[in-house]
Amino acid sequence: MKRVKVLVAKPGLDGHDRGAKVVAMALRDAGMEVIYTGLRQSADEVVKAALQEDVDIIGLSILSGAHMRICEKVLNLMKEKGIDEKPVFVGGIIPAEDALELKKMGILEVFGPGTPLKAIVDSIKGAVDK
C-alpha cells in the first residue's frame, strides 16, 4: 500500500509554528502521512529528515524573512545528497517578486498567508501524482 509522505518543516529562527501545524493537519486529514519536525531546524536537519524519511514532497514554512537564503541552502543540500527529485513547496509571508525568484530557483509552489487549505492540499496531490 502506497501512501503519500510529506515533510512539514520549519527551518529558520522564527518561533511560530501555528501555520505549519494547521497545514500539517490538513494534509493528514487528506489521508497523507505527515512528518513534522518542529521549530528551528537548520537546513541540514530538514534535508536529513527528508532523506531518512524518504518523503515524496517537502514543505517549508518560513516566516523569518530569510526565505531566499534558506531555500537556496535547502535546494543545494538536496542536490548534494541526491534527493533533488523531491518537490519543495514554501509557505509564509513572501513578497511576490521573491516568490518568482524562488520558483526560478526550483521551488515548486509558494503559498501566501491567505491560501485556502484545500488549494494547498490539491496542489500537493497534483505534484505527487506526476
Binding site: 500539517a24 489521508g31 497523507m32 505527515v34 512528518i35 513534522y36 519536525t37 518542529g38 524519511e53
Partner: peptide, 26 residues
C-alpha cells in the same frame, strides 16, 4: 478514517536526528 497520520516523534529526538551515526525513521 482517512488513513492519514501525523508523525511527530522526530520533534523529541533532537540528538539522534542530528547525529550522523543514527538512522531515524518514522
Amino acid at each position: 478514517f482517512t488513513g492519514g497520520a501525523f508523525l511527530g516523534d522526530r520533534i523529541r529526538m533532537k540528538s539522534s536526528t542530528k547525529s550522523e551515526e543514527i538512522f531515524v525513521r518514522s
